[in-house]
Design a binder for these strands. Structure first.
Length: 473
RNA sequence: GGUCUCGUAGCUCAACUGGAUAGAGCAACUGCCUUCUAAGCAGUAGGUUACAGGUUCGAGUCCUGUCGGGAUCACCA
């Protein structure tokens, strides 16, 4: 792609990462794979705008991340393009024709053709600008702790799948129209006919996805393959999976589309072209800044080095952001209100992280006092449990079932909700039941051990979400 | 228009896949720091689960219809 990451991408990446972690914890070996759309007319638009207005600007000279720089040229193209359309319409051309015949669009098409023909000059510029974009993405992915085992580029894969079209024709899964275009007819399953190859013999999205499905199976020989893709592509994946099934692919039954809902703003849907998107880098920076100001306001960084403090702000800010996007059922669309969504109280990551930090303080103190709590015999005669302790233990015992549910439904929100309930209930214990003023040494040992177990479970669950927990905050 | 999807407190979300009195947070109000971190805890108030039928011993959850939001139905990806 040629546009910077936004909030929707964050939901996508956090979901993919968390689901990977949950499946790993459930015994699967997981390969995280990303597909980068690095070719097509949209890239050409950025390239043209750069050619026209760029004056050899680079991310270094402009002091701006590469993905933002390239994204800005995409916007510049669109502005100039719209102007040209308006002028043509003014001269009496109808809008549809104007959109196609505006000089800039014609130029972009020419550029795409040159790219496909391997024109060296075009390829060089394309590579240069792509490198900037990837570097920008790497920086963002680094900040949010997301990584992949393998990255596929569409410039390498966009010609795949044509052999499968041939195979499908032989197997009568596809049929050919008079103009030479090839289609899949799924009308007997309540779906429409779907184009799989253009009349000029070039591929479309479906062709490519048929090819990449085979490629991924050859690369990884997977039992399951989870596509984390937004729900606006439900129909596409429905068709894709049905076609692969009809082609008797051995892996067809293991394919799953983790279809997640869009992130809406109070003003409505995010639209890149209209600039109504929440930029990922801006949001990340804002979350970290908010974490900093909240922490300083509460005066909680006594004894922290500058380095430690900035690490804490990062853990809190990124954690709050991840948790906010993961606590909601993936299937559902969700609303992001910039004014209200950046919160650190209530059902948020900082609340859970705070609970962990308090327990860590208790454990530190116990260790300093030399209190023994690591062995069962330290407290095995304790039988009376406070109500709050009983409730917490009940929650702890639910973990295996919750993990299984999260894995089966590909739903990190199950884990998020669970760890919140655990922290919430522990906090009740924390205020109601004294620990260091426990009535006897064995109860004291038990309550410390009990707290340590809760801290461990908080850490384990937050780790499933890809969220770190601090020992002090 | 066809298909899919959603509609739960003022707002954002839960409800363990059909079980008992529908739960949290935010916002509002009331208390609690001389005691382990108040980013916390306790409490008050807030609901005819869009609406109308149906299935069931039992429905927010299942079926039908209506209304309302969203997505999709490209020789774009």
């Amino acid at each position: 792609t040629n546009k910077p990451l936004h909030l929707g991408h964050l939901r996508n990446n956090f979901l993919g990462d968390a689901v990977s972690r949950i499946l790993e914890a459930s015994g699967y070996t997981v390969q995280r794979v990303n597909i980068v759309n690095d070719r097509g007319i949209h890239i050409c638009k950025s390239m043209i705008a750069y050619d026209l207005f760029g004056q050899n600007e680079t991310p270094a000279s402009a002091q701006i991340k590469g993905d933002h720089l390239v994204g800005n040229y995409y916007v510049k193209f669109d502005q100039a393009y719209k102007k040209q359309i308006a002028e043509l319409v003014q001269q009496g051309m109808d809008e549809e024709t104007a959109k196609k015949e505006a000089p800039l669009m014609v130029k972009a098409q020419e550029l795409l053709n040159k790219w496909e023909q391997g024109n060296q000059e075009v390829i060089d510029l394309w590579k240069k600008m792509n490198t900037w974009v990837y570097k920008g993405f790497d920086e963002t992915y680094g900040k949010i702790g997301i990584s992949f085992n393998k990255i596929y580029y569409e410039s390498d894969t966009y010609l795949l799948g044509k052999d499968i079209v041939e195979e499908g024709l032989e197997k009568k899964v596809f049929f050919k129209e008079e103009d030479g275009s090839v289609w899949a007819d799924l009308s007997d399953e309540g779906l429409d006919k779907k184009l799989v190859l253009r009349s000029d013999g070039t591929s479309v999205y479906m062709t490519q996805d048929l090819g990449t499905a085979d490629m991924r199976y050859n690369d990884f020989n997977f039992d399951k393959c989870v596509y984390v893709v937004g729900n606006e592509q439900d129909y596409h994946f429905n068709v894709l999976f049905k076609i692969l099934k009809r082609l008797n692919r051995p892996y067809a039954d293991g394919l799953y589309h983790l279809s997640y809902g869009m992130v809406d703003l109070p003003s409505g849907k995010m639209k890149s072209r209209e600039g109504t998107v929440v930029d990922a880098d801006d949001l990340i920076a804002e979350m970290i800044l908010t974490a900093q100001s909240q922490t300083e306001e509460l005066g909680k960084i006594e004894g922290f080095t500058t380095q430690q403090a900035s690490e804490l702000y990062h853990i809190l800010g990124i954690g709050a952001l991840k948790y906010f996007l993961l606590k909601v059922d993936p299937k559902k669309r969700m609303l992001f209100n910039p004014e209200e969504s950046v919160q650190f109280q209530g059902n948020t990551a900082p609340f859970i992280q705070y609970t962990h930090a308090r327990i860590a303080a208790i454990v530190r103190k116990a260790d300093e006092l030399g209190i023994s709590y690591q062995n069962k015999k330290d407290f095995e005669t304790v039988v009376t449990l406070e109500p709050a302790e009983q409730t917490v233990i009940g929650i702890l015992s639910e973990f295996p079932r919750k993990l299984a549910m999260a894995a089966n439904t590909y739903s990190p929100s199950v884990i998020a909700q669970y760890v919140y309930d655990l922290a919430k209930e522990y906090n009740r214990f924390y205020t109601e039941v004294p620990i260091f003023n426990a009535p006897d040494p064995q109860t004291l040992s038990f309550r410390i051990a009990f707290s340590a177990v809760v801290a461990k479970m908080i850490r384990v669950n937050m780790d499933l979400l890809g969220i770190q927990v601090p020992d002090r905050m």
